[in-house]
């Protein structure tokens, strides 16, 4: 796997979640107050590359997880926490989960997560894990 680790092979190409090149992430920039936590976050494309590396390495489920993760990079922290909460047992109705899936797909282009949540909703209905 010649491109792995990306930290070495793609140091000139990697960008942060905020769109800065990795080379901008320096001690001086921190010292000057130019960077925030958003600048030290990974970009969706990087996660997709990591997903590709995982798939080639024989880890398809990890790859799928990293694909879903890539879709979630733009979802704000508080929303992520809310979605997680809704997926816990007996928190949401079937319709709420279906709406959540659509919302993620429409707002963040998160098709993989949407399908995953719709699968979950169907199982929750079958296994009595929806809100009562």
């Amino acid at each position: 796997m010649t491109e792995y680790p990306l930290r070495d092979s793609k140091a000139d190409e990697l960008i942060t979640h905020s769109g800065r090149p990795l080379s901008d992430i320096t001690a001086d920039a921190i010292d000057a107050g130019e960077l925030t936590g958003e600048d030290l976050r990974t970009h969706a494309d990087t996660l997709r590359q990591q997903a590709q590396i995982a798939r080639q390495g024989g880890y398809p489920q990890l790859a799928a997880n990293l694909q879903r993760a890539a879709e979630l990079t733009d979802v704000p922290n508080e929303e992520l926490l809310k979605i997680y909460e809704l997926l816990r047992p007996e928190r949401a109705s079937f319709e709420e989960l279906a709406r959540l899936a659509d919302y993620l797909e429409d707002t963040y282009d998160a098709a993989e997560n949407a399908a995953f949540i719709k699968d979950a909703a169907a199982v929750y209905r079958e296994r009595n894990l929806l809100r009562r």
Partner: peptide
């Protein structure tokens, strides 16, 4: 399944949590 639910999660919620963490690197 019952223990899983007693732990206040499902495989799907846990998998989502895993993706959420990964999305933050």
């Amino acid at each position: 399944e019952k223990t899983f639910v007693d732990g206040d999660d499902t495989p799907w919620s846990k998998a989502f949590l895993a993706s959420a963490y990964a999305s933050r690197g």
